[in-house]
Computed example of a mutant assay.
Amino acid sequence: MTDIPVARLAMITLDATDPEPLAQFWSAVLGWPITVLTEQYAMLSGPSHALGIGAIPDHQAPSWPDDGRKQFHFDLAVEDLEAAAARCVELGAKRVEPQPGETWVVLRDPAGHPFCLTDAAAWG
Rank of each mutant, 00 (worst) to 15 (best):
V36A: 12
T35R: 10
L30C: 11
R95M: 08
I12M: 01
R108C: 14
L37M: 13
G54S: 13
L30E: 07
T38W: 03
K94N: 09
L22A: 01
L91V: 00
W32M: 06
C116I: 03
A111P: 04
A93E: 00
Q24S: 09
E90L: 11
W123H: 15
Y41K: 05
A77G: 14
P33C: 03
D58E: 12
Q99W: 06
P62V: 14
C88G: 05
A23N: 04
G31D: 05
A77E: 14
R87Q: 14
E97N: 12
P33Q: 02
E102H: 13
A61W: 01
H73Q: 14
M11Y: 03
E90S: 14
G68E: 02
F25Y: 11
A86D: 15
Q40R: 11
A83Q: 15
H59E: 03
L107Y: 10
L37P: 00
A121S: 15
L44A: 04
F25S: 06
E39N: 08
T118M: 15
W104H: 15
L91C: 05
G54E: 10
R87C: 07
D3E: 15
A77W: 09
A120N: 07
P19F: 04
M1L: 13
T13W: 03
I56K: 05
D80T: 08
V105D: 08
E102Q: 15
S45V: 10
G92Y: 09
E20G: 00
T17N: 08
P5T: 04
P62L: 11
F25D: 03
I34G: 02
A121W: 10
H59C: 07
L81R: 02
E90W: 08
T103D: 15
T2L: 07
R87M: 11
Q40A: 11
M1T: 13
A55R: 15
D58K: 10
W26F: 02
P21W: 11
W104S: 15
G68K: 10
L37D: 01
H59P: 09
I12K: 00
W26L: 04
T2C: 05
V96F: 13
P100Y: 05
Q24M: 05
G112W: 05
T13D: 09
W26D: 00
D3I: 11
E102I: 08
V106W: 07
H113K: 02
V96G: 07
V78D: 01
A86M: 11
E82F: 01
H49W: 09
D119M: 12
Q99N: 10
